[in-house]
Design a protein around this nucleic acid. Structure first.
Lengths: 264, 264
DNA sequence: GAGTGGTCTAGACCACCCG
DNA sequence: GGGTGGTCTAGACCACTCG
């Protein structure tokens, strides 16, 4: 149970966290206790011991389980909360984050209306199919070229105006039962579906954004002239363990919307 | 000296931070001790008691000055470090952040080359003038329409290729001695100049990004055809106290570069 | 009132940096 | 060796939530 195999003297007088392979010349395999606790909690999240939306054990319980002080558990959970893996609620407990909360819906959707309050987009699925991963898709998803992927194409509209044309590629192994039907009938954010139905939770993502001209196809879907400038956002999303599990290429019409970003 | 006027019993036995105007019906004027300490430290940063790049007093010193425990000062500084106002260096101390560090140069410049490592852009000042703030500029900078502003127009190039066409508006009162000459002769990031020469340090910013078509002027500066899609980033930057002190509109050529963003 | 997270303290030891 | 931030602990009290 003790998280530090080399520190068995962890009772009574504190032993601190030092002394793990820090001799002269050894590689720096040292990490603070709270980081080890954080890793253990993350494992429980990943393994599904505590599912999205559920309450995790209290800080005192976890402290007892891991045989460390509450303060150490606290610091571990602090970081997990900062990374949006869990949510703390005073008086109630700590909950596993989920994409099924109003709060989370706009965390990955940065396209905001120039005026007025953000609305949820309407979804129209254009195409869903299974295919072999092209070289570049495979590279970005850390797969082998030719591996099975699910391909999705859809258009999202705000207030009836088609605004986003999106293509997605997902690893075929992780999304076996994914069909157009399930996508169509599902209400709510797609990441919520992925989380509930396929056990894959998106944690973070990186985006590369460019300006491009609408080709004939895009122009058709978005009801604009060919050549209209569009934002092109290429996103790679990651789940636990920094594993890439989604590639997405979105074309955004920014006539009445903008991509909102905060630099801090 | 005691940060909490209503808690004078703060010695010997801890008094906690409760009890400040939390009666039934009173407005919630309560804030934790460490937040008050954080505010006090921020004031010292803003007032210039400790200047960018300088070492601030040690945690024990600050704890003594504010008559709180080191742990409380620590938590205050933790947040300041998370907000990039301050940088901790183990064994050395805590330093006021500055835009004159390699590390900070790309915090606000998110345009990255598609391949290869980021380079520092070459600067070419096109125009510097003083003018009266147009209505929209005034609104975004929280000034009155017609107030004095400094206007700057410049082009930035990577590897000789003009890539960014930028316009800036700065409050005239804060940037009195700002001339084209000083901008031209200054080497390094513009925010470094603003910080050193004008005592205005940019802390955070918000950006709204769109895709637009290059007009004749932009096309000329960026050596592209009129109508070429460009990224348009409208930035408002803030200094201490969430005061808006810069409006910037950049047009980015994204042929060989992209705007990099991390969603987390 | 019991349980949860949130704050505050005091003291110990560690890793790092410098003279 | 002495100073700095970084970690860990133990114990107290507070604010919040719910039955």
């Amino acid at each position: 149970m003790n998280p530090v195999s080399s520190n068995s003297n962890n009772n009574g007088a504190p032993s601190g966290a030092g002394g793990a392979g820090n001799g002269t010349g050894g590689s720096p395999t040292f990490s603070p206790l709270y980081q080890q606790i954080k890793a253990l909690i993350t494992q429980s999240l990943q393994s599904g011991e505590w599912k999205p939306g559920e309450l995790i054990p209290s800080e005192v319980e976890l402290a007892a389980r891991f045989k460390v002080s509450q303060g150490t558990v606290r610091k571990a959970i602090d970081e997990l909360a900062a990374e949006n893996l869990v949510m703390r609620r005073q008086g109630k407990g700590t909950f596993v984050s989920t994409h099924h909360e109003a709060r989370a819906h706009f965390r990955f959707l940065r396209l905001m209306p120039d005026e007025g309050v953000p609305h949820h987009p309407d979804n129209k699925i254009i195409e869903v199919k299974r295919m072999r991963a092209p070289a570049e898709v495979a590279r970005l998803l850390d797969m082998k070229s030719g591996d099975a992927v699910v391909y999705i194409k859809r258009v999202q509209s705000f207030e009836g105006e088609p605004t986003i044309l999106e293509e997605l590629w997902l690893p075929g192994l992780l999304f076996r039962g994914l069909t157009a039907e399930r996508l169509v009938e599902y209400k709510g954010p797609m990441y919520g579906l992925f989380e509930s139905e396929f056990g894959t939770r998106m944690i973070r993502a990186t985006e590369k954004i460019r300006a491009v001209a609408a080709d004939a196809t895009a122009a058709g879907y978005l009801h604009v002239l060919e050549g209209t400038p569009l934002l092109c956002a290429e996103r790679v999303s990651y789940t636990y363990g920094d594993k890439a599990v989604e590639l997405r290429r979105g074309l955004y019409l920014t006539t009445n919307h903008h991509y909102q970003n905060d630099l801090s």
